[in-house]
Amino acid sequence: MAWLCSRTVLQTCRRQFFRNAVYSKDKTLPDPLDLATGLEKRELLAAAAGNFDPYHMKAIEIVRDSTKESPNLVPSAFKSRIVGCICEEDTAHVNWMWLHDGHPRRCECGHWFKLTEVAPLG
């Protein structure tokens, strides 16, 4: 039992990382982009390239006269995404629906949506 407990502890407290043994003698702070790693660094690089919404989480302004042939494009890194449509400008609620890859879908109000694939950040 003790062995089981200690093994669980030792296995769950592992975190993989790499670090450098070289120590900088600078009296100033490290550069933010040099210090950052992983997802944080990708986010900073995207911001440096002018993309402040790298996860595509912000609302998209839809085209009012969309058809099946020219739908509103919804970016997604996955096969499906939940879309919330604010049908009229002064609507007080959001109509939610699933949108799947390769199948353009129409909201009840008439707006068309289609999934476009984008590369994931992480």
């Binding site: 975190r15 990382f17 670090r19 950052a36 790693t37 992983g38 997802l39 944080e40």
Partner: peptide, 19 residues
């Protein structure tokens, strides 16, 4: 201290703490 060590590894060395 060990808990803080794990959080430091997750934030600084794995870069999981985004904006």
């Amino acid at each position: 201290s060990l808990w803080f060590r794990d959080i430091i590894r997750e934030s600084t060395f794995q870069g999981n703490h985004t904006y």
